[in-house]
């Protein structure tokens, strides 16, 4: 039973990919959380398949407005990447500015999301039904965007804390990187929601 040749990274004593347990934990958390969104989206797909009167999202919602929301979140995510890079270089004042900008992007996105909800509710959309067609349409809209919005809200809180920690010089590059991982994930999920719920 001679062991076959393999990279030393898996031999113990060090973490494979030099990742460190914090990143490993974060990656797996993201996988699990991603699957949670996956389950909601799969349920939505199932409901849409059995529905007879599924409304056309592009009629109900304003696509340019949604494109703007997507742009805001994408930009915020890109600024986060710059913030992580700055933190890694040790350029903390720069990192702080990028993080602040990222947070503001998140807040702006939340505001736009809230406005979209306000419009939908004003037009008669409820959890139990909506004026456009199948009752599930409104329910899944509120469920999925609400769940994503909760993630953005949580991200904004975490970003605020991270910014404060950078300002008081208690942050670590790894910590900022983990926040970044989460924020990119929230942005990536939005791309899926945008494509599957609004575009298709």
């Amino acid at each position: 039973m001679m062991p076959v040749a393999r990279p030393a990274a898996w031999d113990g004593g060090v973490c494979p990919f030099a990742a460190g347990w914090q990143r490993v934990l974060m990656w797996w958390f993201i996988v699990g959380d991603g699957l949670l969104f996956g389950a909601f989206l799969a349920a939505y797909g199932y409901a849409r398949l059995i529905a007879t009167t599924w409304p056309d999202s592009s009629v109900v919602f304003s696509l340019p407005y949604l494109a703007a929301m997507t742009l805001v979140l994408n930009t915020s995510s890109a600024m986060m990447a710059s913030g992580v890079a700055a933190a890694r270089r040790g350029a903390w004042p720069t990192a702080r500015r990028w993080l602040l900008a990222t947070t503001l992007g998140g807040v702006l996105f939340l505001g736009m999301q809230a406005d979209e909800w306000r419009h939908a509710i004003a037009a008669g959309a409820r959890l139990s039904g909506n004026p456009w067609g199948d009752a599930s349409f409104g329910a899944y809209f509120f469920l999925i965007t609400g769940f994503h919005g909760t993630h953005v809200l949580l991200g904004v809180l975490i970003l605020t804390i991270a910014t404060a920690r950078v300002a008081t010089r208690r942050a670590t590059p790894l910590g900022i990187e983990l926040v970044g991982l989460y924020w990119h994930f929230v942005e990536l999920v939005w791309v899926f929601i945008f494509t599957l719920f609004y575009l298709l």
């Binding site: 389950a39 959890l127 599930s136």
Partner: peptide
């Protein structure tokens, strides 16, 4: 467990909505 449990979480959330928020998932 990490891969499978999210499906139940989603289902449980949706069932709670059906029970208390008037949805029909």
């Amino acid at each position: 467990g990490l891969l499978a449990f999210p499906a139940l979480t989603a289902a449980a959330v949706m069932l709670l909505f059906d029970r208390h928020a008037g949805t029909s998932f």
